[in-house]
Computed example of a mutant assay.
Amino acid sequence: MKQFIDFIPLILFFIVYKISPQAVDILGHTFMVGGIFSATAMLIASSIVVYGILFIRQGKLEKSQWLTLIACLVFGSLTLAFHSETFLKWKAPVVNWLFALIFAGSHFIGDRLLIQRIMGHALTLPQAIWVKLNIAWIVFFLFCGAANLYVAFTYQDFWVDFKVFGSLGMTLIFLIGQGIFLARHIHDADASTQPSTKKTED
């Protein structure tokens, strides 16, 4: 569930982006709604609300959530300040690559891999499997970053659609693959630790 919280502001961003640009009067002030810049403002506002609620309910935010929020504020603010969507196009690649760097760094820093710290309370796996799983997340984030960058600057008419639904699709496919991978190894681990029921003869 946590993996999909980040998509709430993205979906709102997508909805506002798809609205035909039009002027809206609010309390005597005229605002433009629709298009990339009002969608970016929605992305910033909804991110603050979503992560603010999480912070109030949990008393804290996870490091990944802080990173996502800060990246949204920085790249979104630069997009609005300079009136250039180029800054926002770099947000997804940079965030994904930072996540890849953090997962990779856990191979050299700390006593446990990052994926093991995240999932270790719920799963017991051989260390070799944790290593493979952590590497899989590194590759996933590297691929997502590269895919977002390529689409953003090559297919500019579709980059927002890909930013939302492409990223969501890649995440779903990866999580399903991870589930299949873990199910197989959990089954093998259970089978190897099951006590023998064979009776010994006197």
Rank of each mutant, 00 (worst) to 15 (best):
D188E: 14
R57G: 07
L101P: 05
K60V: 04
M42V: 07
W97N: 06
T154I: 05
D25K: 05
A128C: 01
F103D: 03
V139G: 06
F31M: 06
F140L: 05
K18F: 08
M32C: 00
T200R: 12
G35M: 00
I173W: 14
F103S: 02
D6P: 14
W137S: 05
C72W: 08
K60R: 15
M170A: 13
I129E: 04
K91P: 04
F181V: 04
A39T: 01
Y51F: 11
P9T: 10
V74K: 13
V95G: 01
F99K: 08
A122S: 13
I129P: 00
V50Y: 04
A191Y: 06
F82M: 11
V49Y: 03
L114A: 02
I56W: 14
L149K: 00
I176K: 11
H187S: 14
T124D: 13
W97S: 05
E201F: 15
T200M: 09
H185Y: 12
C144Q: 05
F31I: 03
G76C: 01
L101G: 14
G120L: 08
S84G: 08
T200K: 11
I109P: 13
S20T: 07
P195C: 01
M32Q: 07
R57I: 12
L125R: 08
F99S: 10
T193K: 11
D25R: 09
Q58C: 13
P9H: 12
V16G: 00
A128N: 06
A100N: 09
F158D: 13
F14Y: 15
P93E: 00
D111F: 15
G169M: 11
I180D: 07
W137F: 13
W159F: 11
W66C: 03
S77Y: 03
G169S: 13
